[in-house]
Every structure is written in C-alpha cells, then in structure tokens.
Simulated scan of single mutants.
Amino acid sequence: MAIKRKTYRFRRGAIIDVEEFHDGRYGAPGVKRNKRAKPTEEQMRAVNARNKARRCRHRLLEYFKPGDIWATWTYSVQNRPPDMAAALKDFQKAMRYVRKEYKKRGYEVFWIRNIEQGTRGAWHIHLIINEIGDTASIIQKAWEKGGTWFTEIRKSQYYDEDFTKLASYITKDQHTVETKKDGTPGKPRLREANYGTSRNMPLPEPKKDKLVRWKPEPKPKKGYYMAHIHEGINPVTGFKYRRYTMIRYRRK
C-alpha cells in the first residue's frame, strides 16, 4: 500500500506541519484492490468538517500568532437578525469600519470568523483577528448590535500550540456534537452557522513525497520540537492517517 506525505512550511519554515496517510486507492501487497464503496452522507460530512478545520488551522499557523485577538460579537435581544443573510450584512458593515481603521494605521487586516445561531435563537459571531496595538478598541467601536468580548488567543480556553482546538471550535456547525462523559454523542448546540475568512490569506502548497513504510513514531527535525501529534482513521477509506507539527526552537 502506498504511503504518502505532505509537508507544509509556515512562517518561513519556523513551523512545519506534516500529514502522512495511506493511499486508499491501493490495496495491500498481493491483494486485489476492492471496489471502493460509496461513502455515506455522514462519512462525507465528517471528511468535509475535518478538511475545513485543517485549512483553518493552516491559516492560523501562517497568519496568526498567540498574541492576536480571539473575540466574540454578541447581539442584544432587540438587535437579533431575522436570518443569516442579515447577520452577514451586520458582519460586513462592522468589518468595513475595521478595515478603514487598519488602513489608517498602515496595516492589513486578517480575519477568520464563524456566525452562529444557537438552538435557542441567540446569535453571535466568533472572530479571530490580527493585533495591531489598539485592535480591541477598533472592534468594540465597529460593533453596534450588542457586546464585544475579547482576549488574546493564548489566554483563551481553546489555545494550543498547533491551533487544533481553536480551528475545530471556530469551524463548528449545526452538525457538530460534543461527546458526553459516557462516550455517546450529545445534541447539536447550533441551529445554523456560516464560516468565512478574509481573502488575503493564500496557503502555501505542500511538498509531496512517498514513504517506504509507516514509522511507529515520527521524530522532530534538528532544531525543532514536536508540538503535537494526532493519529486517526479516515472514515471513508478506513486507513490510518497522522499529522504532526514541529516548531523551531526560539521562534520569534
């Protein structure tokens, strides 16, 4: 079976993110390849959610730092939008103000957001945005529909070095459920969600190569430490996959 590897280099090589996986198009040596079964809707939903979180995490690694801002714009009851289209217009209006203020100061704005409606009808917008010194003041003045809550990414409960938790949280939608203590799935907490990013954040292309064998445990490159290792099973192919993030020592 072919084993493939994709290597991404972020922040000019200060962060290296690696994906290793078995190519589901090939069977084991000497075994005739079986016709791939059509994935179920639930399986495809899981794959799409994982891909969305992966792209989000890559943008976080490339464009954001732990000192950037994790914010939430809330709606007061009387200002709740009637639908997602109205909520999107509210967000766009606020971001026009933010972009104008960033431009005045000579900065470009980078953002990732998720507009969410809870199952009880309340709306809010989660926002990740680059810090330029007075970002907190800018986003407070930009939002006129309710309150503004903010902190540094590194001080939030969703922070970890490779941004896995934050990417998973901000890309959640109406199909996302939390696992209960007994291991059973809980109920969705969102009625609707709309995820988006600013358009000025292209992602680097990965280096692709093939591995001779699946190593029991990856080792960090010289001068780097292993920040995170994650292994799982692809719900469509049924094969193992692994990703790990290495960070250069003394990264600025």
Rank of each mutant, 00 (worst) to 15 (best):
N48H: 13
A37L: 12
V47M: 11
M44W: 03
V31G: 05
G27V: 01
G24D: 01
G30W: 01
P29V: 03
R45D: 11
P39M: 13
F21T: 06
V31L: 03
G27Y: 00
T40C: 06
H22N: 05
E41T: 12
D23M: 08
G27D: 09
M44G: 12
R36H: 12
M44L: 14
R50M: 14
R25Y: 05
R36D: 14
T40S: 15
Q43Y: 02
E41H: 04
R33L: 09
A28I: 06
G24S: 05
A53Q: 06
K52H: 12
K52Q: 15
N34P: 15
D23W: 00
A46E: 10
R33N: 08
Y26P: 15
G24W: 00
T40Q: 10
P39W: 07
G24E: 03
K32D: 09
G24R: 09
K35D: 06
G30M: 03
P29T: 04
A49L: 07
R50F: 01
P29C: 03
R36F: 07
K32P: 10
V31M: 08
N34W: 09
P39A: 13
R25L: 08
E42R: 12
N34C: 10
G27E: 02
A49C: 13
K32L: 10
G27C: 00
M44K: 11
R50P: 02
R45M: 07
A46K: 09
Y26R: 15
R36Q: 10
G30V: 03
N48Y: 07
D23P: 06
